[in-house]
């Protein structure tokens, strides 16, 4: 991981780091890489990945509509709302 790639990550995650934060982050990446590399001796090629620690199958719900939430309540904490919409700067599509 280098500063240029990190810039790409910042953009993707909508963040802007200070130079100090960049240095600290690069150091963090290195530590994590080192501790991960230390496990290189463990062969996982024949090990099935485990997505769920308490696995179940087919957890589904019936196609039923529930009581709607109150729009005013949902919009109460909105930084900018208008006419029942959340509002943001003009987005060119």
């Amino acid at each position: 991981m280098d500063k240029d790639s990190l810039k790409g990550l910042e953009r993707l995650n909508q963040l802007a780091l200070t130079p100090q934060q960049v240095d600290d982050t690069l150091a963090f990446f290195q530590l994590r890489q080192a501790e991960w590399d230390a496990l290189a001796g463990i062969d996982t090629s024949d090990v099935e990945r485990m997505v769920h620690v308490a696995p179940m199958e087919t957890v589904v719900r019936e196609d039923v509509v529930s009581e709607p939430f109150d729009r005013d309540e949902l919009l109460e904490g909105a930084p900018d709302a208008m006419d029942g919409y959340w509002q943001v700067p003009y987005v060119l599509e």
Binding site: M1, L6, L9, E10, L12, N13, Q14, L15, A16, L17, Q21, D24, T25, F28, F29, R32
Partner: peptide, 19 residues
Amino acid sequence: SRTEAFGDVLKTVILFGSD
């Protein structure tokens, strides 16, 4: 918004996590 509201530890974790 995210840069102002998030602390530096969280930012690092976010970037590493996305990588």
